[in-house]
Design a protein around this nucleic acid. Sequence first.
DNA 1: CCACTTTGGCAACAGCGTTGCGGAAGTGCA
DNA 2: TGCACTTCCGCAACGCTGTTGCCAAAGTGG
Lengths: 392, 392
Amino acid sequence: MTPVSPGSVPAVPAAPAVAVSPAAANLPTLRGHNAALVLDLLRAAGEAGASRSELAEGTGLTPQAVSKITARLRDAGLVAQAGHRPSTGGKPRTLWRLVRDARHAVGLHLDRDEVTAVLVDLLGGVVAAHRAPFDLGAPCRAVVDAAAGAVRALPAGPGRGGRPLGVGVACPGPLDHRTGVLRRVTGFPHWDGHPLRDSLSRRLGLPVVLDKDTNAAALGLALRGGEGGGDASFAYLHLGTGLGAGLVLDGVLYRGRRTGAGEFGHQVVQLDGPECGCGDRGCLEALCLAAVARGDAAGAARVLGTGAAGLAGLLDVDRVVLGGRTVLADPEPYRAGVERELAARAARTDGRAVPVSVAPGGTRLVARGAAHLVLAPLFGRLEPGTRPEDLG
Amino acid sequence: MTPVSPGSVPAVPAAPAVAVSPAAANLPTLRGHNAALVLDLLRAAGEAGASRSELAEGTGLTPQAVSKITARLRDAGLVAQAGHRPSTGGKPRTLWRLVRDARHAVGLHLDRDEVTAVLVDLLGGVVAAHRAPFDLGAPCRAVVDAAAGAVRALPAGPGRGGRPLGVGVACPGPLDHRTGVLRRVTGFPHWDGHPLRDSLSRRLGLPVVLDKDTNAAALGLALRGGEGGGDASFAYLHLGTGLGAGLVLDGVLYRGRRTGAGEFGHQVVQLDGPECGCGDRGCLEALCLAAVARGDAAGAARVLGTGAAGLAGLLDVDRVVLGGRTVLADPEPYRAGVERELAARAARTDGRAVPVSVAPGGTRLVARGAAHLVLAPLFGRLEPGTRPEDLG
DNA sequence: CCACTTTGGCAACAGCGTTGCGGAAGTGCA
DNA sequence: TGCACTTCCGCAACGCTGTTGCCAAAGTGG
């Protein structure tokens, strides 16, 4: 809605005022929706580009409508022609592609002990990165300073991109994405109630979007070309200090009303089992971390796989993606163990086994995903934020 | 898309041809979307009605746009004026309400041992009902006959409603909603691969939509005025012959790609626990049904509550609704037991406890929900099917 | 009776995707 | 080399959307 006005008031994306459940649509909405569809197809096509008729086929728009839309996007500098396809007996198709550096976004991953900042272009490619030690347990003021410093350490975006569209911030939950306020971050109770999004937005003079690290990672995976990118629904399971999940359902990041969705680690898999830090007994996380602690990756994977199988049944996901420090340190036993449990479940229900993969992107996965919190709305893949209709 | 052409070819709702991910929008789409918004508000307002400015406020449309839309809907016979609100110092507001019997839909619940058919009006009210013994284990041909007979036993809709918009069919899973084909229904393997939707549609000469009983129930609850109706996300837990769930997430019925979502009973809550019919060990369903069998409702409720707490955390739902024959036979111990577990979880995470309620609607809940499979698209609450733009 | 408030329809309008059509730019055969 | 054919794609006219400006209608309150 509110256009990002460079160099003026820090334009925080308008939180949806009243929950006008599904919003009314008018002509600008329509235009923005279709433009986002076209942009999203071009994003998926990447450097290869796509032709007018392919875009028409993929969106359902008429070729003429695609022509008008691409012309507008060209005038806005977001797309450009990129050669032609070989002729098939007639005039060859003109290819269009996204202009990588037309816009940029910053992704910021605040982890417990380090901060990662990346500058990404429209295609999600990392243009610059910065990593530094960090202490999420320090006083809020110092942490906000350090976070802002990490963003400022990135070079100013080159070319027309200049000023980034905004900053996506990912950090451990619980937190409220809609208000941008942290809750009682596990281990660091002093964050409870701190409006991190607004603090950072004021400090940087840029729009800021806040979300959980697992959600950012899942969003990044949903927008990738490769594995996980083509799946309408998948679960990203993150095993590190704790055990959490990011859910993409029917192509949309699912957060739940209070950004609480994805609390995967505190499902009970062993009634009256060993006590967990949360106060319950027999939680997935407790069993899994205990196995990790005694070096039993296979055992941890079995427990993780049991939880994954339950989740796969409950949500009928197309894929399970594993990530987090513990998994990335030695992925194969986890992948194989979870795969075995999912295959066993498939055999019982005689359905196809849900495929498992290890998250690509390494230690930058979350930071890149955080940048997508800002970029995704351009492509109609996330509700609030900058839409194509704001860019003309 | 395809208008329902009364009295011609059985118009089965067009299955989305190619997965044109999010569909392109044009002016008719826009018009239909906004009309659905207005209809949905009027549906929620019920007999009380709503005024032009209230509709404008609720949808985000301008009052003038609402005027145009209500005029079109009036010409189509879907809405009518219903008095005025008291003046607040100016011209009093004109109230509009849905015309109850402008259209009707049939809901059909095929349970293992009985069939329930209901004829409902636009507001979801039951106009006529029919119930009969039934055997889902009989040969397919006989079952289709019996199902068609139950529909024909309903009186032809009065007034302009005349011919129903379509028939929503709910039955035990697994099945594929998109293709309308049953899979290996537990206990009745001979259904595997039977295109029940198309069989019934040909037999009745009406559009048919097929879904799982739990999904139909959840949809019906989502469209109710009362409890569960106002919640964006909730889980309906159904305890009867088995244990399943229907999920409404962010206001939308979530099915998963292969209509497999909601398999709630086969989550493991007791590693290496007692064997379950599915072949796994320690499933929620096995433990729960065992407790029920030995008359231990409190124990069953505790197990159910453990599963509900896990689900509430994973999906951050706003409410849990309990239903199914076992629960309805004696609701209180189940409600109280599940509530206790959810309260315990809330205390651990210091959040608010997720409220629990028992499904209203009694033995017709599923059949009414099935009718909503046909009605919901009119109100923009379910994707395919008859949209307002087909009615003018 | 009159000033004021509030509702809501009429008419003009900008802008969306659609349709009809024709020129541009290739291929392939004579 | 020339010509018929195929395919792509932009111009122009069009129908229809929600929006805006305006004014009549229908109440209240002094």
